[in-house]
């Protein structure tokens, strides 16, 4: 099934410049409906309002981190099936294992390039 380019994507990062980078790279991939949040709790609030189809989140944020957000999402019956990609500078294998155990769909380490972002999205959402 083709990926719907009109899907609603939530990007979460405490660095505004990173949000802008992600937004621009996603736009270049023709994804236009992008919501932003600057930490896990704000993201969770937006997710619970509905309509989000896909989450791309940083890990290291306050007060709610990306891994806490992921656990909240996976524990919520309405949200638990959402595809969730972690994009983070945390590159230790313990982090990757913890994210996998928490139910992450894929994991991108910063700094990343557009090709990596696209390939990980394809692996989660299917080809586009």
């Amino acid at each position: 099934m083709a990926v719907d380019k009109n899907m609603n994507i939530l990007i979460v990062d405490d660095y505004k410049t990173m949000l802008r980078i992600l937004r621009n790279l996603l736009r270049q991939l023709n994804f236009v409906n992008i919501e932003e949040a600057t930490d896990g709790s704000m993201a969770l609030q937006k997710l619970r309002q509905g309509n989000i189809d896909f989450v791309i989140s940083d890990w290291n944020m306050e007060p709610m981190t990306g891994i806490q957000l992921l656990r909240e999402v996976r524990a919520d019956d309405k949200l638990k099936h959402l595809p969730f990609i972690m994009i983070t500078a945390e590159s230790k294998s313990e982090n990757v294992i913890a994210a996998k155990q928490a139910g992450v769909s894929n994991y991108i380490v910063k700094p990343f390039n557009a090709e990596t972002l696209k390939s990980k999205m394809v692996s989660v959402l299917g080809d586009f």
Binding site: D13, T17, K110
Partner: peptide, 12 residues
């Protein structure tokens, strides 16, 4: 695209 990728330095 290359410029956007490079701008990630600020985050790191």
């Amino acid at each position: 695209t290359n410029i956007y990728e490079a701008c990630g330095f600020q985050d790191i």
